[in-house]
Design a protein around this nucleic acid. Structure first.
Length: 271
DNA sequence: AACAATGTTCAGTC
DNA sequence: GGACTGAACATTGT
C-alpha cells in the first residue's frame, strides 16, 4: 500500500525502534529484491554497524549507518511493509513485540512467506521487509538525485513552476517522481477530486489559482493520510470503483487510463 | 482465465 | 536532448 504516507509510517517505525542496535546478521539472499547486489554483499556492508538515521523523500526510504558506512536504500514498491521486532530478551513481555502500524490489512500482508530481506540485531530482534508483489528493492547507496521535492514540503512557488508546465495531463505530472516526489495513483486521484480539477487537464494550462488549490489539496490529503494511517483512508478512495459515485454530488465516476494508471474522477465537478 | 493491482524503469516515438 | 507514452518487471487477488 505504499505511497508517501505509508512510507513515512515505515520511516517513523524504523526511527523509533531500529536505530543504534548493532547488526549481527543480514539475510540478503533474495537476488531479485536486492538486485543488482550479489548475495552477501549487503550483509558484508552492514554487519557490525548500526542504523543511525531513517530518512525519506517522497516514496524513497533510506537508512544511514554512520561512520563512513553505506546508505541502505529500502524501496517498498507496490506492496512492501517494514516490521521491527524488539529484543529477544524481552520474551517475558510477549517476546516478538511488533512495532509499526497494525491494522488488520497490514498485519495480513506480513505473512512470513513474503519476507524478502531481514536484518538481525545483536539483541535478537529484527527488521524485516515483507513484499508480497516483489516490486520493492533493497540496495546500497541508492541514487536519489533524480527525485523532485517532497510532496509534503514543496513550496507554493516550486509547485507552480514544476507541476504547472508541459502538455501532459496534470495527473501524469503529479505522478512523475522527478517533478514531485511522493504522489502515487490513489493520492493523485484523491487530491484532484478534493481540488475539483480534472486529471486530464494539460498541466501547463492550469491557472495559478488552480495550481495553488491543487497544492493545498495535496498537502491536506497527504497529512490526513499520514495521521489516519494510509491513503486508503481518503474520502474519495472508498468510492473509487467501477460504477462508484461521487461522494459529494452522486454523479457516476468516470474511469480511464491517465498517466499509465487507472484513474477515477467526477466528470461533473472536476473540470 | 483474463485482467487489474497503491511501484519504478526502460525502450521507443515525436 | 527533452517530453511523453506504453510495455515490462514479479506476484497475487478478483
Amino acid at each position: 500500500v505504499p505511497e508517501l504516507p505509508e512510507v513515512e509510517s515505515a520511516r517513523a517505525t524504523i526511527e523509533a525502534a531500529a536505530l543504534h542496535r548493532p547488526i549481527a546478521d543480514v539475510d540478503d539472499t533474495d537476488t531479485w529484491e536486492c538486485r543488482p547486489h550479489a548475495p552477501g554483499e549487503i550483509r558484508a556492508a552492514l554487519v557490525g554497524r548500526s542504523l543511525t538515521a531513517a530518512c525519506r523523500q517522497g516514496k524513497s526510504l533510506w537508512c544511514e549507518t554512520g561512520g563512513g558506512g553505506p546508505v541502505l536504500g529500502l524501496h517498498l514498491g507496490m506492496s512492501g511493509r517494514i516490521l521491527v521486532t524488539g529484543a529477544a530478551g524481552a520474551l517475558t513481555e510477549g517476546g516478538d513485540r511488533l512495532v509499526g502500524p497494525g491494522s488488520a490489512a497490514e498485519q495480513a500482508d506480513r505473512n512470513p512467506v513474503w519476507t524478502r530481506f531481514t536484518i538481525v540485531f545483536a539483541d535478537g530482534g529484527t527488521l524485516r521487509l515483507f513484499d508480497k508483489r516483489r516490486l520493492g528493492r533493497v540496495r546500497l547507496d541508492p541514487d536519489l538525485g533524480a527525485l523532485g521535492p517532497d510532496a509534503e514540503r514543496i513550496t507554493a512557488a516550486a509547485f507552480r513552476a514544476r507541476v504547472g508546465r508541459g502538455t501532459a495531463p496534470v495527473k501524469a505530472r503529479l505522478l512523475d517522481q522527478s517533478v514531485l516526489a511522493g504522489v502515487g495513483n490513489l493520492l493523485a486521484d484523491e487530491t484532484l477530486w478534493q481540488a475539483r480539477i480534472s486529471p486530464l487537464r494539460p498541466a501547463g494550462e492550469l491557472s495559478v489559482e488552480e495550481l495553488d488549490r491543487l497544492r493545498r489539496a495535496l498537502r491536506a490529503a497527504t497529512r490526513s493520510a499520514i495521521r489516519k494511517g494510509g491513503v486508503h483512508t481518503g474520502a474519495f478512495i472508498a468510492h473509487r470503483t467501477r460504477g462508484g459515485s461521487c461522494p459529494r454530488c452522486g454523479a457516476t465516476l468516470a474511469r480511464a487510463t491517465v498517466g499509465g494508471r487507472t484513474t477515477f474522477w467526477c466528470p461533473v465537478e472536476q473540470l
